[in-house]
Design a protein around this nucleic acid. Structure first.
Lengths: 124, 124, 124, 124
DNA sequence: GTGGTCTAGACCACA
DNA sequence: GTGGTCTAGACCACA
């Protein structure tokens, strides 16, 4: 497990997004144990406090559960995970469409732009 | 002129984006005078330093020009404006596609999602 | 026997309170044998160390007695049990009244709130 | 402003409860500025990080708002404050009644106990 | 071993 | 000045 940190976003958020991605795409499954604070801190070479913060946020979003003294686990509630995925997707979509409209793009132009752009990327 | 500020982004960036939007969509035209630091600060009820910073950045991007003693004006170079528009659009697009892919969406799913979502919004 | 564990309190305390409740309400009677550490740990699916700790505390409070080689038993001293009940009740009461006063409730309001709330629950 | 810290609860929670109390009872009013992280840390003689944590939690509960670079303020939404108060009261009440019932007390006994206990305290 | 809290102190972006 | 993030490291309760 490695994450390339980018300086424009807090580290704890980057780890959060990384883990959310792993969970949403099923690489981390419901009930799976996630690394301990110390383990992950050592692996990513960052301070344990930063990892701690990441985990607390994930817990607050109910994506992760703590079992006292036994470590942390991906939530068993698949529904929660599906909801997170939907929420994130809707969020990204809304922000995108709003952004394009603010730039003055018409509906069809937006759809075309996405289609072309993706096609171009897939060709690579 | 009012902007609903969102806490997750620096105010000066939010004003920048707002003004860029006004320019790109032609509500502010090349050569138009823009408000003074004091005026805008009073109107938006924010610190003049923040407005100052906004204008500095817009100047750095050559979207706005200062004429000594006469105030600030939207650049007359339409090409610059077109470029800004393209840049912003590409940025938004890239971020969007990357985000959706991280959530595990396939290319076609992304295009469909955009098309449907826009159609739904246009119906409203 | 099942306990719904709540993450904000140590498990051993939650088991203690559960067992105290059973004893105080007479479901476990003076002289009754209580389960062994292993049995209870297996049943509740928790670490035997945790159960051990629970029993130690109950012994310290003289609610439970160990008979060498024969297991643990609810104390025969009914007085002890009565005292525990009183202590627990006073504790709960004090915490409740203090809490409501901190929220700015007046004495009569507190009494009324309890009376109404209980009446509402009994109706269900 | 002084808080007597008690060792059984995290400091950040004790400050939170203190501030919530001040807000709910109207000593801190909607829109009031609350002390800065550094100020409060100095006053309570604790680490700024601990205060920071307190404030972040209050923000998450929407009791407090940050205005960038200008400090933090009690939320202007009086409704939010009322809701917090109601929630806290219901919580305390429920926990109390459940606790007494687990001890085997009947409904009338609970009401009587509260009434007597409060009367006794008021006499002091 | 595992998580939770806290101190001490630094550095940065923002207003 | 104000908040946000992070490091380094300690100590504790719990399992």
């Amino acid at each position: 497990m490695t994450i390339e940190f980018d300086n424009n976003q807090p580290i704890y958020l980057q780890i959060m997004n990384y883990l959310k991605g792993e969970i949403i795409t099923g690489k981390l499954k419901p009930g799976d144990k996630i690394p301990s604070v110390r383990e992950l801190a050592a692996e990513l070479q960052i301070n344990p406090n930063t990892v701690q913060r990441t985990f607390q946020e994930l817990e607050r979003e109910e994506i992760v559960e703590t079992r006292r003294g036994m470590g942390r686990y991906v939530t068993g509630k698949e529904e929660t995970i599906m909801n997170i995925k939907k929420e994130m997707a809707r969020d990204i979509l809304d922000r995108f469409i709003r952004g394009m409209q603010e730039l003055g793009f018409q509906s069809e132009e937006i759809v075309t732009a996405v289609a072309e752009n993706i096609a171009a990327k897939d060709r690579k």
